[in-house]
């Protein structure tokens, strides 16, 4: 369980009146798919950095399965448990080749050397890059680099996986492929997915949505409940997918269509 207790965060040197995060209280279970939604500057990425101790809260506390991020001797264990895939595919790889990059994290946690290459192959296999273990990282496309970043963190068997706008620099095709693969992996290998985005269509099947606005939580609940609140999306500067807008309009016409209806089902229904 991840617990944030009265967490506030203010960047050093910034405006002393502006909080990147203000008075956040959260509990995140270790199996859920939770989406953090909000426009740029709402505090989503700051939150992700607090979760594995990359930043420490200015006030309050963050604890991961009972380990507090302000205890420096517990940070390795926390970071092993909470892994993050960041936005930019170019700045997450340390190794020159794919195998070396995945081995980097394993090497940091003291993974036994005799098993390391097997683990590297396993992780590359998860993302469909098993054939490319000796390729140079800079020869990969953006989508492949992001898959590699995912493989590198999955190799460490995290309990919580944070995706910090991990698809925002990918083209639509690579984005679809990445998401499809992510859900397939999660099906085989369960972990809590903490998904930070402002693309609603990527998280329609999440268990929980948390809306952030100006560093505060403004809504927290199941997507089916929150989707009914059109004003919330407008307030948080988020674009509602066309399909959802259509369902909204149909609801107003008195038609009872479930929110998670796919385009094909919707056409059939209509």
């Amino acid at each position: 369980m991840i617990e944030l207790d009265n967490v506030s965060y203010r960047y050093l040197g910034g405006d002393s009146q502006t909080w990147a995060l203000h008075d956040i209280n959260l509990q995140l279970a270790s199996t859920q798919f939770v989406a953090f939604l909000g426009q740029n500057g709402s505090g989503k990425s700051t939150l992700s950095r607090l979760l594995n101790g990359l930043e420490l809260p200015s006030n309050g506390s963050v604890s991961i399965d009972g380990l507090s991020t302000d205890q420096s001797d517990q940070l390795t264990q926390i970071r092993r448990s909470v892994q993050v895939v960041f936005q930019n595919p170019d700045t997450q790889q340390v190794g020159l080749t794919l195998a070396e990059d995945i081995a980097f994290g394993l090497s940091n946690i003291g993974y036994p050397q005799s098993k390391m290459m097997n683990r590297v192959k396993w992780a590359l296999g998860l993302v469909g890059l098993q054939h490319a273990s000796d390729y140079f990282v800079h020869e990969l496309s953006g989508g492949e680099k992001q898959k590699l970043a995912l493989a590198a963190v999955l190799a460490l068997s995290p309990t919580y996986l944070v995706l910090d706008e991990a698809t925002s620099m990918l083209d639509p095709m690579a984005r679809r492929e990445f998401l499809h693969m992510l859900h397939q992996i999660r099906h085989k290998q369960p972990f809590a997915l903490l998904y930070i985005t402002h693309h609603l269509d990527e998280v329609l099947h999440a268990d929980r949505w948390i809306f952030l606005h100006h560093g505060k939580i403004v809504a927290d609940g199941h997507p089916n409940d929150l989707l009914q609140n059109e004003d919330l999306f407008i307030r948080c500067g988020l674009e509602i997918p066309y399909r959802i807008r259509l369902i909204h309009q149909l609801h107003k016409q008195g038609m009872d269509i479930p929110w998670a209806t796919s385009i094909d089902q919707l056409v059939e229904w209509l």
């Binding site: 950095r49 970071r79 946690i109």
Partner: peptide
């Protein structure tokens, strides 16, 4: 940030 997040610590012994 990415290296730290992947448990890198130059003071710790690595395999």
């Amino acid at each position: 940030a990415s290296m730290e997040s992947r448990c890198y610590d130059s003071n710790e012994k690595r395999t």
